[in-house]
Each structure stands twice: as structure tokens, then as C-alpha cells.
Design a protein around this nucleic acid. Sequence first.
DNA 1: TTGTAGGCGTTATCAG
DNA 2: CTGATAACGCCTACAA
Lengths: 335, 335
Amino acid sequence: MNPTIKDVANLAGVHPSTVSRVINNDSRISEKTKNKVLLIIKKLGYTPNAIARGLKTKRTNTLGMLIPDITNPFFAEIARGVEDAANKNNFNVILCNTDDKLKKERTYLEILRGKRVDGLILGTAHIRDKSILELEKKKFPYILVSRNIEGLDKNCVIVDDVAGGIIVTEYLIKLGHRRIAHITGPLKTRSALNRLKGYKLALKKYEIEYRDELAGQGDFRIKGGYQVMKRFLKLPEPPTAIFAANDLLALGAIQVIQKKKYHIPEDFCIIGFDDIRLASFVYPPLTTIRQPMLEMGAIAVKMLLKIIEEGEFNQRKIVLKPKLIIRESCKKINY
Amino acid sequence: MNPTIKDVANLAGVHPSTVSRVINNDSRISEKTKNKVLLIIKKLGYTPNAIARGLKTKRTNTLGMLIPDITNPFFAEIARGVEDAANKNNFNVILCNTDDKLKKERTYLEILRGKRVDGLILGTAHIRDKSILELEKKKFPYILVSRNIEGLDKNCVIVDDVAGGIIVTEYLIKLGHRRIAHITGPLKTRSALNRLKGYKLALKKYEIEYRDELAGQGDFRIKGGYQVMKRFLKLPEPPTAIFAANDLLALGAIQVIQKKKYHIPEDFCIIGFDDIRLASFVYPPLTTIRQPMLEMGAIAVKMLLKIIEEGEFNQRKIVLKPKLIIRESCKKINY
DNA sequence: TTGTAGGCGTTATCAG
DNA sequence: CTGATAACGCCTACAA
């Protein structure tokens, strides 16, 4: 059995409330009793019961974090950024993998609400209007990472996906490509939609016709990239370059290409998005758009704590700049 | 303010304890009042306060998980296995990155104890004798994953690292290699020590002398592999094959090798350990030892729950078989 | 089948 | 500077 504040009080010959005060560093308390109590605490190996404390104070110092899948290096980096920042501020984080399934998201939200987490980091896809609106109505602290919602210009930290899409596409165009394909993410996510939007805008700018058969919907995972690329290869006129909406999709595409004995960048050029750590280790090293994942996680927590601790419920929408990292998966094309 | 059990009781015209009973599915309760209460609960959007409940029941239905770094794909997979299994059993998990730092480990342990988690998944390095002994003494439920402790043959799930080391080394020997180097993990970890042990055993079996200059200590991360490999390359007689104690180390080694314009597997053969998902996407696709990470996480949780829910404090030591996955980073050597 | 009462371990408020 | 007391929201004998 764990010792309680009472045990400490008894042994120290003081009242429990006094012990509570030394634990919480109350100023008005004599050095003498303080030391006495501290000694007993150490001797007993006493640790305050955070559950009891939480019941009283209505704070748990824990955050909930919903992401699709911790196994996705993009979210693992974000999670690390989140956890580090939380830890530095005396918070813990509960990890929840939603697989972007609406039902799992809802269940987790319900459980976390029951556990009275102080705030939520949301990196999952479906969470939209309804759930967010509810959080808003209840004034429940939350921040979206790498996700934003149509018509909600606050409480989120993202990179400029449209700009990212433009940068990539424009880069490929300038290398001489005209048949540029795009493997999108799930089109229920805003980031996928925005990268697609950037892609289309760039095409338009250079007066290249957008073609439906050159845009295939993936799932932000290796498998999706594999499947979509397979379809591209079967086209009467396959693309010469592929813009994958994230690095994992790019890896899937690369896998098919190499399986069919084609070469990158000679036969196909390919660009990813995210710059996961392993992007530089695949073959060929992947040209991609860098997102500062660790930083995004840290910023999100900082904003969340502002809400929690200072009640500033409306945080700005933070939009970070994407950056093209040129490696070896693209080359100039010759006609 | 969240509604409480009292609010529900008042509106339903019953006593709080009755509400508590319907929440907890107490058998002896009339369908009628049950439905009445359920209706109000729904109407109010009432969620039981897990904190208050935990204070009373001394159960939190949350686990603590200590790992070095969620950004390491090996641990991300384990974490996913853990979280999935936990979730299926109505548990949540608090994520803690220790960076294998003793101090961080201690602090987390202390915090988690304060938060009264029901059990601990330990995948971090330092945790040894003292901390474990304390957990043992307090009968605090824990399971070690991918870590085991000298002289503690229980409560852990690992792969047979010695066997893994032997398999790798023997494979290289049979390909004709004689100068086989080993990039170890941090030698404070048992898994690193055991893989090294396997390496030495295999050398001995084939009467190849073990040479100190062909074994360098890494850190289980890319950087370590990079640094150690750099040293290997400067040797008067460099190795022809490298056994890296994990895939990340292998990636670091590959990076140096390619930077110096050498080729794999022509100039150097290389083998990793873990089979992280991206091992098949690096160039060349990495031959490695597969560890069933997801499964290990799931097994660990299963064992932990046995301890928590059935009090069977001493779980067996589970040793999984390692498996060599042959890809393209090795070839026969010709003299 | 339902109500009553007490307590889980803290902290906050009021006295002293 | 310290003690007493009540309350946080729920569960669980025990009583009815």
C-alpha cells in the first residue's frame, strides 16, 4: 500500500494540510516544519496521489494525442515533438492511434474526456465540424496539428500545403516535364486536398491541362502509392514525373517502378512530401518537401498550454513554410 | 462544467448510487429505472469521471510505456503493438521517451507512480537491478520488452539476440567473408551485448580470430553507424562485411560507404537487425534479422494484464526466434 | 430493487 | 504559521 499524506502527517506530528502545503511549496511555512516533513516524505518514499489531487484540482497534467498511426514516421516525429514539449512543462501524453477511423476517433475522445485530460492534440483526419464544434462549445482545449478544417482559421499548426504543391509541381515543370502525375492523400483530409490544389494551380499557371487519369487517390501509406503507381504505368501514355502527396506514397511508387525494372530518375522522376528521416536513405535519395515535424509538435503544445493555463481559447492559425529538399530522384527531361 | 452522477440522479429522480449501478451494469436493477437513467445520461451527455472512479477503485486503466525514442521505427512498431492491445482491453497508454537516460527514466517512473498507472511496459535501457528490484519489491506490475536483465528470467519478451548474432555472422562466413566487422549497440544494453556474443560465438565456431578493431560501439542510431563505419574504413585492412546491431546503424554505415563512392554489396556487404519497415526501401534493400515488433508489444500487454487482473505476478520469459531476411546487401565473396 | 452513509487522498477555505 | 473541516465525484457495504 502506498503511504498517504496522512501517514506522513502522523509521523511528522503535523496536520495533513501542513504536509499538503510543503508539497505544494506554500510560502508561509516555517523552515523547520518544512524540513521535518520533507524528511518523513523521503523516509516513507511518499508520492502524492495524482488521482486524488486531480479530483480536487480538476487538473490532470495529461494531454491526449490522437494521430492516425505512430508507425508512420511523420506522426512519430510529431509525437516526439509533442511529448518533449509536454514533458518539459510537466505534462504527460496519452497516445491514441485512430487509423483515421471516425469511430475510433470518437471512442478515444469519449475516453479521454472521461479521464479528464487537460487538452487534446489532434492530428487525425476525420475530426471535423461536429467533433470540433463540440469541443468549441464546451470550451475544451484542443489544437490541430497538420490538419485544418474548412472555415476554422484558428487553433492549428500546419504547413502551407497549397504552396508546397505549387513548389513541387513548378519544380518538375521547370525540369521540362509535361505529363506530371499526382498521387494524392485521402481526399477527406484537407492537407491532401490542398496539395492537390497546389498541383492544379501550378499546372494552370504553365498552361498545362489537368487530366483526371493523372491524379490517383492514395492513403498516405506505402500500399496506396504502390497501387496508384501501378495504374499509372498501365496508361497508354504514362507520366514522366510523379508528385506523391507524402514520402510513404512515394516509396510505394518507387517500389513498383523498380519492380518493373524502370529507373529513377531516368525513366520516372518522383517527389515526395514530409521529408521523413529515411527519405535520404532510399534509392535514389528522395527529393521532397520538408515539414518541420518536431517543431510543429512543440508549437502545438505551446499553444495548447496557453489555452489551458491562461484561458486564451482562441489561438492563431500557424502556417509554416514548406521547403523543397532537392536530392536525386529528379532530373531534367530531354525531348 | 461537466454533469456529475448527482445531476443525473436528480433529473432521473433516483439516488446517485442507483445511477452508479446502471453505469456499472449491476444486475439487480429494474429495466425501467435503468432505461430512465440511461435516457438522462444520454440527454445530459454525461461521462463518468474516471478520476473520481479511480480514486475509489484504485484502478486507472492506463499503462505507462517507457521507450528510448518513438522516432526510432523499431520502438514505434512496438508502441503500436502495445497501444492496440491496450486499447482492445480498455486501457490507455502514456508515452514516455527516455533517450535511454537514467535520469529521465527515473523521473518518468516517479511521475507514473504518482499518476497510479496500473502497469508499466519497459523498453528502455538503463532500467536495471535497482529500479526493477524496487518494482519487484512493491509488486508493481511491469513487463520488459526487447530488454532483459542479467539474472532476471521473467516478465519479459525478447528475441533470441545471441541466436540472431550467430545467424548473421554465420551467413556472412558462409558467403566467404573472413574480415567481418560488428557495429554494436550501446554495451549497457543486454541486447547489444548478446548480439555481440552471438557474433563472437560464430567466429569461434569457424575458427576466425576475433579482433578488437573490428568491433565498434554504436548507439542504435544512424549517427553511431556513420561514425563507427568511418573508423572501419580507415583501417589498414578494412572489413569486407559489416554486421550492424540494428537497421539504423546499418543505414549510417551505408551512408558513409556510399559517400566514399564504394558500392554495396560489391565492395562491402552489410546486414542489419530488426527489419524495420523501411529496410526494404533503402538501397540496396537491406538483408537483416526480423523481429516481430507488433507482436512483441501485444504479447507484453497480454502478460501485463495477466499480472494486473489476475495477480499472477511472475510471468514467463518469452523468447522469440529471430529470422534472417535475405535481400540485396550481401553477396558471395571471391578470393 | 433501491436508498443511506462513509470513505478514497487531496486541496481550499476559514479560523486561530 | 498551522489546524480543522468540507468537498471533489464516485463506489460499496449495509440497511430497508
